[in-house]
Design a protein around this nucleic acid. Structure first.
Lengths: 205, 205
DNA sequence: GTCTATATTCAGATAGAC
DNA sequence: GTCTATCTGAATATAGAC
């Protein structure tokens, strides 16, 4: 790899820009983080920065993609050592999900970027719309399989539609992230954990 | 009332602007609805429009306030004829809540405005932040009292923290509204109804 | 009290030089 | 690969006409 210096350098520069952009978004907020300011932080002109990403929105999407990549890597590691009999009790998919939420509470800048870009992406024709649409489809597809497994093992009520559980879980996570930005005293992870508790069969415990 | 013609005229103009703005947001999206375009729709210059509202954001907040006023008026009417014994079954607070959600699904422009402004308001120092903070406090305060009533009458599990139920209900509504904008095939009202069903005592059916 | 015209400021994006 | 220069278009401020 790194066949040509310029290629490796380009990738490294992208990483550097993503990291600097995230820092500035965290400090100054999503809207106030201008291309100009991010460019200055990496010793580039605005046009120089846009050479790597094409647009401000594309840069923001790249930040979220990098985050998702890390999260899914972490999740894979955690799920590799799970005990399928004990989901909804501290291991497995739901525990990993709660860990991601708890981790989010330590990176407000990233949450703000996510919430705001997701809201903007609702606009028809928005460049980030495809990203969010596909992202939900993938996340929910994965979740549905995990929920079905949990239902077979008896840790989740079998009368619930796994697709409903998946949809609701992610809607709840998104809604709590917005609420948490307005009031950081909310414990998103604890609140979602209570919801997951409601999914257990009534007579199990 | 309407002591002076100019005062009544000013209020009427405000209503007209709010209505036109909502229409343009619905047609063109929240971002693309510029002050210029809204002003043209009501035969005003941009500065003329801003004379009434001060800023684009203040106009947007006024739109949401008008909506909340209508919704709370409708809710009051509905709740005046309720049967407290039968909440969580088709009357009372939860039914009214579901009706508001179902109505939202008929006004995508308003939902988009709400979701996007709420996301922007998360930014510290944003002019709409106070509006959303106070709005949640009021809505949740009202919901908590209704939930406590429902718990006393046995239609909601008594082991649930009413504050958690209120927080979660509104977070879920917000999250589903974002998801619905991306995929309008989602039935927000039906999905939230399933959640409300989970709040009922396990042995009451 | 209501509104227009103008000017300023600042954002993201683009063209083409180096 | 990066810059300078420039374009477009947004919001807002000011001065003042009606």
């Amino acid at each position: 790899m790194a066949q040509r210096g310029s290629y490796a350098k380009g990738l490294a520069k992208r990483e550097q820009i993503i990291s600097a952009a995230l820092e500035i978004v965290a400090e100054r907020g999503y809207r106030k983080a201008t291309v100009r300011e991010i460019a200055e932080a990496v010793d580039l002109s605005p046009a120089g920065l846009l050479h790597y990403f094409g647009s401000r929105e594309a840069l923001c999407i790249a930040i979220l993609e990098a985050r998702d990549l890390r999260d899914s890597h972490d999740a894979d590691e955690a799920l590799d050592h799970r005990d399928p009999q004990r989901d909804n009790t501290g291991h497995g998919f739901f525990a990993t999900f709660l860990e991601v939420i708890a981790h989010n509470a330590t990176v407000p800048g990233l949450v703000q970027l996510y919430v705001q870009l997701a809201a903007e992406a609702a606009e028809p024709g928005h460049p980030a719309r495809a990203f969010f649409t596909q992202r939900s489809r993938e996340l929910e597809g994965f979740a549905i399989r995990e929920i079905e497994t949990a239902q077979r093992s008896g840790s989740i009520r079998q009368d619930l539609d796994p697709r409903w559980v998946a949809r609701t879980l992610y809607a709840l996570a998104d809604g709590f992230q917005t609420a948490w930005l307005l009031d950081p005293s909310i414990d998103m992870s604890a609140d979602i954990k209570v919801f997951i508790g409601l999914l257990a069969p009534p007579h199990s415990g």
